[in-house]
């Protein structure tokens, strides 16, 4: 059997095992907290209607949250894990094993995807009950939603990997991702239609994938009439796939080079230095 294909299979298995390890761990606290926070938001929004439509604000926010979760998991997850794995030696271990890097990266993608699936369920299922159902959502809509989610992952995951490769420490990776993403989310029309913020901020928001992901998930799950609340009054499907596509293509162009450079530079003494730094921060 081809050694690379063999390692790829091991990577899938690795992702599944790491996912299972997180299931029973404290990692799920974050999911539960997020689920509860989002539920509260939806609860308060359930009786408000979006201006110009008959759709409730909660019904608008629920799909937007799914889009946001993709961007969040796609960037914060890999950035944190990659920087952590550089510090604890997982990456070096992968480097010491034949085709270990193939297995490692595929394992990470698998785990991030499965993690995202859990997050989506945690957000969607209780939210669906509060919103009281989404009318007109059948198999085609769900398939379309899946396409948007996959494209969204492709648009964000490579960038998470890039940040994780460049950050000097896991804390640095968090700093690079958490706050900026929160900021972008705030202006991307996730919790309230983007039309409510100043025009120049709308322009800024449209440069990032978060807005387009939210738009994509809304277009998948909401009736066409709800498009009236969007900029230009339409779902702008072409633009949505276009912008996400550009982020994905750029990401897949940049990430392999940066990942390779990071992996090449990884060595035991660097790891030891980072370990010492971590000890001094008091987290070793």
């Amino acid at each position: 059997m081809n050694a690379r294909t063999h390692a790829a299979k091991l990577g899938l298995r690795r992702g599944w095992m790491e996912f299972r390890h997180t299931l029973g761990s404290s990692d799920q606290f974050f999911n539960v907290l997020m689920g509860i926070a989002f539920l509260i938001v939806l609860w308060f929004q359930r009786d408000l209607t979006v201006p110009g439509t008959t759709v409730s604000l909660a019904a608008l926010t629920l799909p937007s949250m799914l889009g946001m979760a993709v961007a969040f998991n796609g960037i914060v997850g890999p950035a944190g894990q990659l920087s952590m794995n550089r510090e604890d030696g997982t990456l070096l271990r992968a480097k010491a094993v034949p085709n270990g890097m193939v297995g490692y990266l595929l394992g990470r993608v698998t785990q991030t995807s499965l993690d995202l699936l859990v997050t989506l369920l945690v957000v969607f299922v209780p939210g669906y009950l509060v919103v009281g159902g989404l009318s007109g959502v059948g198999v085609p809509e769900v398939l379309y939603l899946l396409v948007v989610l996959v494209v969204g992952m492709a648009a964000t995951l490579p960038w998470g990997a890039v940040i994780g490769s460049l950050a000097k420490s896991p804390q640095g990776a968090m700093g690079f991702t958490m706050l900026p993403i929160m900021g972008v989310i705030a202006i991307s029309g996730i919790f309230y239609p983007i039309t409510a913020i100043p025009g120049w901020l709308q322009v800024v928001a449209q440069g990032f994938p978060v807005y387009w992901l939210g738009l994509g998930t809304r277009s998948a799950l909401l009736p066409d009439a709800a498009a009236a609340a969007e900029l230009t009054g339409s779902w702008r499907t072409l633009e949505m796939f276009g912008v996400l596509g550009v982020w994905a293509v750029l990401g897949f162009l940049v990430a392999p080079t940066i990942l390779r450079r990071m992996a090449r530079r990884e060595s035991g003494s660097d790891m030891e230095q980072r370990r010492q730094a971590a000890l001094q921060r008091g987290v070793g």
């Binding site: 790491e18 035991g268 790891m271």
Partner: peptide, 14 residues
């Protein structure tokens, strides 16, 4: 090749 480095802390959950 087999490699044993000075410090590993990886795969703590495995």
């Amino acid at each position: 090749l087999g490699v044993v480095l000075q410090s590993w802390r990886d795969h703590a959950r495995w």
